[in-house]
Design a protein around this nucleic acid. Structure first.
Lengths: 127, 127
DNA sequence: ACAAAAAGTTAGAGGTGACTAACATAGTAT
DNA sequence: ATACTATGTTAGTCACCTCTAACTTTTTGT
């Protein structure tokens, strides 16, 4: 199982990856508001789980496995944000913050139902 | 700030309290599926924060402050469960499990909006 | 009341994940 | 090329939360 902390790192790498897919530790450090030494510890953990390609002192990128996990995580984030914005009418920025906190706790089943619900809701109201 | 672990203990105490308000450690231990020694550690922490009245080897209960926290926590649980059951049409048992996981991550703002939304949703459909 | 059983605590250890401070490597500019 | 700066890592510490095993207190039953 992937801890919510490691999911945050995966998500950050996916979000911050440029065209090459490579990201620097300091970029993650700023984005997640953690120290660089904490990033290093997380990178070692992610590498151990085959989720990133990583050599010390070098930029790194998600493996295919890591990309798969990132897609799941980002989908959960997106559906929650959409729900907050379109259904609960929360501001985008607040919605993103809230989605970050909750996304780790929802499973595939709820995500699926929520995706359907938000799609139908938008259709009904022609959004 | 209260960790999600401590919120679980607070919630358990509130749920398991009888008429007297008092609960035994072993009741919590079974309910949360943790060892009794873990309960002891949590109780010391909760007492330190003035959330329970507790003397070693004795049953314990929530303080007024603890009760206030419990009410907030239970409200978040309830609104999430209602949303899952009535809106997403998830089975009650599944909904309760999911609510347990997520309730720690939602704040007062989202809770409030969700309460309103679920109330309106039920009204519209005359549930 | 007193022995046995149940309930609760303590001590010690392990995993996670963050931090600081000191050190090492990489990139840049003259 | 070398010195400077930025970036990244290591070592050591701390907090949190759990566990097992051994011990203490309370409750129960005869």
């Amino acid at each position: 199982m992937l801890s919510s902390s490691l999911e945050d790192y995966i998500e950050a790498i996916a979000v911050l990856a440029g065209d090459s897919g490579y990201v620097h530790a300091s970029t993650i450090s700023e984005y997640l508001s953690v120290k660089k030494s904490s990033v290093t510890a997380a990178l070692r953990n992610l590498k151990k789980r085959n989720l990133i390609e990583y050599q010390p002192y070098k930029p790194f990128k998600l493996t295919l496995l890591g990309q798969e996990r990132a897609i799941e995580i980002l989908q959960r984030h997106t559906v929650l944000r959409d729900f907050f914005v379109h259904v609960l009418q929360i501001e985008m920025e607040q919605a993103n913050l809230a989605a970050c906190k909750i996304e780790h706790a929802i499973g595939a089943d709820i995500t699926e139902k929520l995706v359907d619900f938000v799609r139908d809701f938008k259709k009904e109201r022609s959004i």
